[in-house]
Nucleic acid binder design. Structure first.
Lengths: 151, 151
DNA sequence: TTTCGTTTAATGTCAAAACATTTAAGTTTG
DNA sequence: CAAACTTAAATGTTTTGACATTAAACGAAA
């Protein structure tokens, strides 16, 4: 559905304003979509984001600040999110050998297993992948325009 | 800055995945930007969203559910947000004459004044408007691709 | 070495989101 | 009309976000 229909907007919008609202609306829509996919696994969006970041740097771990700088939502409290994941056994925390201020966080074997399980379920859940209506080149163009939007 | 640089991503991403992450990242970036602009006025993003919706339907008011259905973030608790705005004198609440379950919320004169003040400040704050690097046709293309992304 | 500033992570606090639940008013049906 | 159902708004509760502050460890300079 078009943005104007979604927001029941009456007056016509300026193109940049329309793009801005559409970014925020689409992100909120995506958030809702992803939360529903993650709920059965007891993960929130930011928690899943951390797991994927750690999976990407496996087998090396990352410090709390390194995780934070790679997150989509930089305002989240990584210390507390990591502690939650640790209590679920999905990550491990090891004090840094040389710099004792730091804590190195790594994904655990159960954490990796959960990620592959979620990945598998995503292909078979019937709802399709978000963005699947875009061609590859449209997706690339979209990403490029978003980069430019932030300039 | 490009998304890969922002997220310090090492591995190359698939186009649709890159678009998805870019939408969420850009929205988070925008959220941060807008919150900073609104802070001096004591407004949060959702509160500002409600004020603008009510301004758009002025002088008619809207019911709580009508407001909710027009919001960017549909998960917000409109009753409580409206109560905050009412305490600040920015909106007014009138029970509906025919259906006493409903409450009609309208923007007040101080509310309208605040909106025009914010609008003015936006042009003179030096940080520029988000998305100003896009041409009009790029902004339209971006909005169109986002509509298609949600299909 | 001691002091000062910086960096890293954790914690404290308050407001807001994310649910569900409740209350009240309206509508439909037997 | 009364009971059951539906809708609108408010409220309850728990978790999370947003932001400041603290605590500990490191590095630089007197």
């Amino acid at each position: 559905m078009k943005l104007e229909a979604e927001l029941k907007s009456t007056k016509p919008m300026q193109p940049r304003q329309r793009a801005l609202l559409n970014i925020m609306f689409t992100a909120s829509w995506l958030d809702c979509f992803l939360s529903r996919q993650l709920r059965p696994y007891g993960l929130t969006g930011p928690q899943y984001n951390i797991l994927r970041i750690l999976n990407g740097s496996y087998p090396k771990g990352l410090s709390v600040l390194d995780i934070k700088s790679r997150m989509i939502d930089r305002s989240s409290n990584v210390s507390r999110l990591v502690e939650k994941l640790r209590l679920s056994g999905l990550v491990e925390r090891v004090p840094h050998a040389e710099d004792r201020r730091m804590v190195i966080v790594s994904i655990s074997e159960p954490g990796k297993k959960l990620l592959t399980e979620i990945e598998k379920a995503r292909f078979t859940d019937g709802h399709g992948t978000p963005g699947s209506k875009l061609t590859e080149s449209e997706a690339m163009e979209l990403a490029h325009l978003l980069d430019k939007f932030r300039e």
